[in-house]
């Protein structure tokens, strides 16, 4: 029951983050929102593992955290290297 409640909280926050990623006035809002979606999904996977009695799923969430970080880092590097002089993108 407690796990279900926390999963529900994760679901609500993902919905709000998707709305932010879609509406987001600047591209940085979108990047931050997408990164946070990844974080909440990682949280959801670990919770789901514990709720079903399979705590090995924590390994998967660690891998996802690394990939999520790498993706965000790549997007931000793209910004620094190519779009600094282009103001209308943000």
């Amino acid at each position: 029951m407690m796990f279900a409640a926390v999963l529900l909280a994760c679901a609500v926050s993902i919905v709000m983050l998707v709305v932010r990623a879609a509406k987001g006035p600047t591209a940085f809002d979108r990047i931050l929102a997408v990164n946070s979606i990844g974080t909440v999904i990682i949280l959801g996977i670990s919770l789901h593992g514990f709720a079903l009695g399979r705590p090995e799923f924590v390994d998967i969430s660690i891998l996802y955290a690394v990939l999520n970080f790498l993706g965000t880092l790549a997007i931000l590097r793209f910004y620094r290297s190519s779009a600094v002089d282009n103001e209308d993108i943000v």
């Binding site: 998707v18 990623a21 879609a22 987001g24 591209a27 979108r30 990047i31 997408v34 979606i37 990844g38 993706g71 997007i75 793209f78 910004y79 779009a83 993108i89």
Partner: peptide
């Protein structure tokens, strides 16, 4: 915006 599309496809 292409960069937002790339970010969303990652999500």
């Amino acid at each position: 915006t292409l960069i937002a599309i790339v970010a969303l496809s990652g999500a």
